[in-house]
Computed example of a mutant assay.
Amino acid sequence: MDGNGRWAVAQGKPRVAGHSRGVDAVRATLQACGERGVEFLTLFVFSSENWRRPPDEVSMLMKLFVFALQREIDRLIELGVRVRVVGGREQFDPELRRLITDSENRTAQNQKLQLTICADYGGRWDIVQAASMAANAQLASGANRVELSDSEIEPYLALSFAPEPDLLIRTGGERRISNFLLYQLAYTELYFCDVLWPQFDSVELDLAFKWYATRQRRFGHTGEQLERASIADVAQPG
């Protein structure tokens, strides 16, 4: 979701206008994903590093977050969308924390699409907090020393309820993941496009899906191994 500020500047508008237009792009993308059968959608709306932005911009972003939750919650319920917000919430004001909890509770039974909003989130933070909680759990169980593996850490990750992403889409022309889901993106296909987020629409989404369809996901295997396995599956009787 990169490029809101640059879009606004190019239009001769204040940066907050770009963030407001970005909410419209979220709404359109959410609907397009639902229509295409996407079951999990994760949005990186505010990183732990974004607190470094000018105070006026951060304040407006928080107000926009409140406004968006208030305005969109009924529509999300109608669409069967379950909302989760992951990341640190300590720096959010009480009203925003209340709205987040209310949105999560009101959509908890929805199953059509799982929407995760990463706010005050960072991939490094996620790994550190998960490892810390896993270590504390081992010590609490009476272990003399801590020995961590994937299976011990993963239940404590912020998105432990979701599968690892198949596809990451980053708008705005940047070619990096910027501290987003560092653990979970190990085998994710990374798609970068130059379009700014306020301009992202269903056409751009379909272009990303079309590109993804050309990828061969090997997970450590060779292409020849996958081709042989595919042929064997086709030849399997029944």
Rank of each mutant, 00 (worst) to 15 (best):
F209C: 05
Q114P: 03
P163A: 04
L207F: 11
L41P: 03
P55I: 07
V83Y: 07
W197V: 08
T107Q: 06
G22H: 13
R106E: 08
R52C: 10
S20H: 13
R228K: 13
S230L: 13
R97V: 11
E164A: 15
P54T: 03
L96N: 06
F67E: 15
R215D: 04
C193L: 00
R228C: 05
E154P: 01
A208N: 01
E147W: 04
S132K: 15
S151E: 15
A140K: 14
V9C: 09
L185Y: 08
G220T: 14
Q109K: 15
L196C: 04
E174D: 14
S48G: 08
Q111V: 12
L76Y: 15
M62A: 05
G3R: 09
G80A: 14
E224G: 09
I77G: 01
Y121R: 10
A108Y: 05
A232T: 09
D150T: 03
A158S: 13
V195A: 03
G142C: 02
L79R: 08
S48I: 05
V9I: 14
G88P: 00
P155N: 11
R84E: 01
L182D: 04
S149E: 15
C193H: 03
I100L: 10
E104G: 06
D206Y: 08
V23R: 05
E227H: 12
T101A: 14
R53W: 00
N105Q: 15
R218L: 15
M1S: 09
Q31H: 12
A137T: 08
G87L: 05
I117K: 00
R124H: 08
F200S: 06
S20R: 15
F209H: 03
V203C: 06
A140M: 09
E154R: 12
T171Y: 07
L181H: 00
V23G: 01
P55M: 05
G122C: 07
R82G: 03
R36C: 01
A108Q: 11
G22F: 14
S141G: 09
E204I: 00
E189C: 09
W125C: 02
M60N: 09
R21V: 03
G123I: 07
R228W: 04
N179D: 12
Y187C: 02
L190Y: 11
R215N: 08
K13F: 07
A135E: 06
